[in-house]
Each structure stands twice: as C-alpha cells, then as structure tokens.
Amino acid sequence: MSSGPAGHVARSTVRPHCETSRRAPMRTFLRTTDGISLDSVYEPGAVVYDASAPPSRDLVFVVAHGFTGDVDQPHVRRVAAALARHGSVVTFSFRGHGASGGRSTVGDREVLDLAAAVAWARGLGHARVVTVGFSMGGSVVLRHAALHPGADAVVAVSAPARWYYRGTAPMRRVHWLVTRPEGRLVGRYGFRTRIHHRDWDPVPLSPVDAVPRIAPTPLLIVHGDRDGYFPLDHPRMLAAASGDHGELWLEPGMGHAEHAADDALLARIGDWAASRAG
C-alpha cells in the first residue's frame, strides 16, 4: 500500500525560471504484499527545478537498517540526515523491529519490506531510487535488486556475502540471539526485535549469489577493514561476483554498519549515488 504526499507545495519567484519544491515530512504504516505493516518515514529534500530539468529526475534514498535497528534509533536518523543533503529519504523499520508488525526473518522476507518502501518512494513521484543497506539491510538491498528490480543504484554497507557465518564472536552472539528461545526473549525485550522461531525453508538466495543478477544496475560495496562481524573476505567475494558493474570501497579504520559510517563517508555515498542513479 502506498500513500500520496501530504502538505502543500511552496513556490518561490526569486528566480524567474526555477521552482523550489518541498513536500511535507510524512510518517505512515506501509503494507507489504504478505500483509505486514511497516513503520515508515518520508523526509523530502528541497530541490530546485530548472525548466530544462524535469522533476522526474528527483532523487530519493531508501535506507535499510541493520538487525535490531529501527526507524527511530539515533544512528538511523543520523544516516537519514546525512543523505538528505543529496535528496529525499525514506526510512522504515523492518518486520519484527520497533513498531512494525510481524517477526524478523533475518534477511529472508525482508526483501518484501524493502519492495514496499521502494514502491512508496516511486508513488511519491521519485524517478531515481537508490537503496542503501547496512549489515542485514545490506544483504536485503542486494537480494531485492536481484529478485525485485526497481532500484536505480544499490549501496551495500558492511553486508555479509554468505549465510550462517559464525567466524567472529559478534556473529556467534547473533546466532545465539536468533536460534535460541532465550536469545529471542533477549531480542524481544532488550532490542525491541521479535524474531521468527522457524528456520529458513527453503534457504533464501545468498547475497553473493544475488550480486551477478543485479547488473547493469550500478552497485557500490562499502566495508570497513576493522569490521568485527564480517572480515574482508565478505566484501571481496561480493566485489568479485559483481564483475564490471560493481565498485568496492574498503574503508581504513571503519568498524561495522551505521554506527561506524561517519558523515564524511555518508557524504561520499550520497555523491556516488547522485552521479550513478538514472
């Protein structure tokens, strides 16, 4: 389900051949094709349109947060604020996270959540859509681009390449959280994340197997060389699978996901997306 923009359009006559348009911010619940409600926020950018540049070129970022995140967490809001300097931004809470309905499937059916958010962005009039995902959200943007084409550029930050990775202590803790009843209780009450108790059946397409299907959509893979969750073989596998249509940034001193992505990196991501999308 998508909803139209609320509020009014403010016009300026300072420049005779330009129009400055700003939609009102909006918060709503979207509905996925399998019936899950998603807490979602749209923040419009202030874009100046020249008569020779149609409004259909307007850019929007759809941000997919990491596991145990949600739309109200400060690190998600900081990412949204940084990307808003380059275009409008849609953020949402994945199923089972925050105020969204359902239970987390840790990257499987979350592609339907992202598809609903992308459709909402399109319905608001944006022709250039860039999906930006962090950690679990990074795996989701890769799988979404392969299974539900609809993005004009894709950015995966701190994404895993393969499933069931337990090679680091943080990932062993994540597996305990997901697979053990007591872990799921901690997820529910400690992290506001409701995790589905069923195992994957079938096992979803892995991120590294999804990547070759994304071409020719531009793809950026970003990973820190101090990521405590996924070592550097993960981004290198993704980059190798992407061939000529992918780009890899290995960031010196960077840790994991949204918390480690500073404003300078987010500004570079915004610049990359603006130059590649559409």
Rank of each mutant, 00 (worst) to 15 (best):
S2E: 11
P5Y: 11
G7F: 10
S12M: 10
V14A: 15
T20C: 10
S21N: 15
R22K: 13
R22M: 13
R23S: 12
R23N: 13
M26D: 13
M26S: 13
S37N: 14
S37C: 13
S40D: 13
S40K: 10
V41S: 14
Y42Q: 11
E43R: 14
P44D: 10
A46C: 09
V47R: 15
V47S: 15
V47E: 15
V48H: 09
V48F: 06
A51R: 15
P54M: 08
P55R: 10
S56C: 10
S56T: 11
S56A: 14
D58P: 03
D58F: 05
F61D: 02
F61R: 00
V62D: 02
V62I: 06
V62H: 06
F67E: 06
D70E: 14
D70S: 13
V71A: 14
D72E: 13
Q73H: 12
Q73I: 07
Q73T: 05
V76F: 05
R78Q: 06
A81I: 00
A82S: 09
H86P: 05
T91F: 08
S93V: 08
R103D: 15
D108H: 11
A115S: 07
L124E: 07
L124M: 08
H126S: 03
V130E: 09
V132Y: 13
V132W: 08
V132F: 12
G137T: 01
A146F: 04
H148S: 09
P149M: 03
D152K: 09
A153V: 01
V154P: 05
A156N: 02
V157P: 01
A161Q: 03
Y165S: 00
Y165P: 00
R166C: 01
A169Q: 15
A169M: 12
P170R: 01
M171F: 08
W176E: 03
E182H: 15
R188S: 11
R188P: 02
F191C: 07
T193A: 09
T193W: 04
R198T: 14
D209E: 13
A210M: 05
R213S: 11
R213V: 07
I214V: 09
T217A: 13
I221L: 04
R226T: 12
Y229F: 08
F230V: 00
F230W: 00
F230N: 00
L232D: 06
D233P: 01
D233G: 01
P235E: 01
P235A: 02
R236N: 09
M237Q: 14
L238Y: 04
A239S: 12
A241P: 00
G243Q: 06
D244W: 14
D244V: 07
W249K: 05
G255Q: 01
A257S: 08
E258Q: 13
A264P: 04
R268L: 08
D271F: 04
R276V: 02
A277W: 04
G278Y: 08
